[in-house]
Nucleic acid binder design. Structure first.
Lengths: 243, 243
DNA sequence: GGTCGCGACTGATCGAGAGCAGTGCGAGGT
DNA sequence: ACCTCGCACTGCTCTCGATCAGTCGCGACC
């Protein structure tokens, strides 16, 4: 069965063993393939009954805006990720999601997802279990913002992004292709764009990592990990816990 | 049925309609009532197969430690909260949890929970759905750390805590009882204890909020909300989405 | 070919919050 | 009665990162 090979079902089966019957409602979902330009806002904060999307190509980011216009990027999404789950779980969305690059995604309507969840509770359990893993990443990000210096934050952030991309086969310990601007980094790391630039320069001069022309190159992976205090344990996994 | 009235089942039924059959495995869980002294570490980062706890009285906090010994508190737990879910979902815990006050909690063993989840997938769905709401709080906290000044952070944090406590009936717009030390606030807000003290003094002098003798008093609730840019929308709820 | 706009990059200055080094005070222990 | 320990609180200095005010290079568009 083809479905079993998709990145999404592989992700879902990581923690919860899913039978064909559990996956069947997923296959029957009304889906609509769509593509969006960079900067397009797929979901905005406060929106009611927003659709969700399964990202098949390109990068997106979820963020929140503050009254004064500043924004905090909470997370980036890469191919295989599920966008906007929380906006389905809670009638209105507590965050916005926008396309970073041009993206290809499959739109799934909120009522359809809820119906599938009602029909196959094990599927719902699997989706939410996977969401908990994303929460672990958000928690890491929070620690990053609360307790690390600008340089440690940057190092940690780039390593984590690299580790996530390595899981889906687009990155290794030499580096990865990265479409983000320095403004994206600033909004994610709670820094000014100016300071992001200086930090990147310093990391480059130290021979740790080079961010240039859409590519992050780990010049000294091990020393970078030491600077960042990086430990990727929570990205490990080894077979479903719920059978 | 008594179970239906407990804070936990009320929380679980907020988003997913649960039948007696869904709740039955919960009732059959092997439980053990325990109490712990302030400062006791219930779960530590990296621990494998940790138990979970349902907090019935007192406050706890979840946190992560950095190599240099600093810590970042991710979240506080109040009566009715579930402790250590992520340590059950992923064999090993990515965070520590310790008692802030003396606490009363019911211990639930990991295999028992997984068994209950396997028997009643709708129960699992409900638990994880509730966990997603906690994630929304973590995201708010992240925005707090990334983009707000020390004063805004403090104001926002105290208001949010107040709103959560008001939901369980122990707090209103005049304030709430709060067993935290200024060190707890510092570790939660990514500030030094020294600066927490100054910020609290300033907020008091401005007539906004007074933190003293285990009590947070909102002296000017509306102005405080304005300072904090506070909006508690994501704490709202109105009937299960999954029936 | 000019210009418009975005993103990378830089220098100078300023300020929020850290770090250090204390004091004061109340609760518990002996 | 004294000591200790934890927490609240304060003044001083210094640093990290923000803010301001730019330049430069490049691709898109007329």
């Amino acid at each position: 069965m083809l479905m079993l090979q998709s990145p999404l079902t592989r992700k879902l089966s990581a923690y919860v063993a899913l039978s064909a019957a559990d996956l069947e409602p997923l296959a029957r979902l009304h889906r609509r393939r769509r593509s969006f330009q960079p900067g397009h806002e797929l979901i905005h904060e406060g929106q009611a009954n927003a659709s969700a999307f399964i990202l098949s190509d390109g990068w997106a980011c979820s963020y929140k805006l503050l009254p004064d216009g500043e924004r905090q990027i909470v997370d980036f999404q890469i191919p295989g990720d599920f966008l906007g789950l929380r906006s389905i779980l809670f009638r209105t969305s507590d965050h916005s999601i926008e396309a970073v690059t041009r993206i290809e995604a499959t739109e799934v309507l909120a009522p359809d997802i809820l119906e599938a969840f009602a029909e196959a509770p094990r599927l719902a359990t699997a989706v939410l279990w996977a969401a908990s893993r994303d929460e672990a990443m958000v928690v890491e990000h929070l620690v990053n913002l609360g307790r690390r210096s600008a340089e440690e934050r940057m190092a940690h952030f780039l390593l984590e992004l690299g580790a996530r991309l390595a899981l889906v086969g687009s990155g290794d310990r030499t580096g990865f292709d990265c479409p983000l601007t320095q403004y994206h980094l600033a909004d994610a790391l709670g820094l000014s764009a100016v300071h992001v630039n200086r930090v990147l320069r310093h990391l480059r001069e130290e021979g740790l990592v080079t961010f240039r022309n859409g590519r992050v190159a780990f010049d000294d992976f091990d020393r970078l990990k030491a600077v960042a205090g990086f430990d990727s344990g929570y990205l490990d996994q080894d077979g479903p816990l719920l059978r």
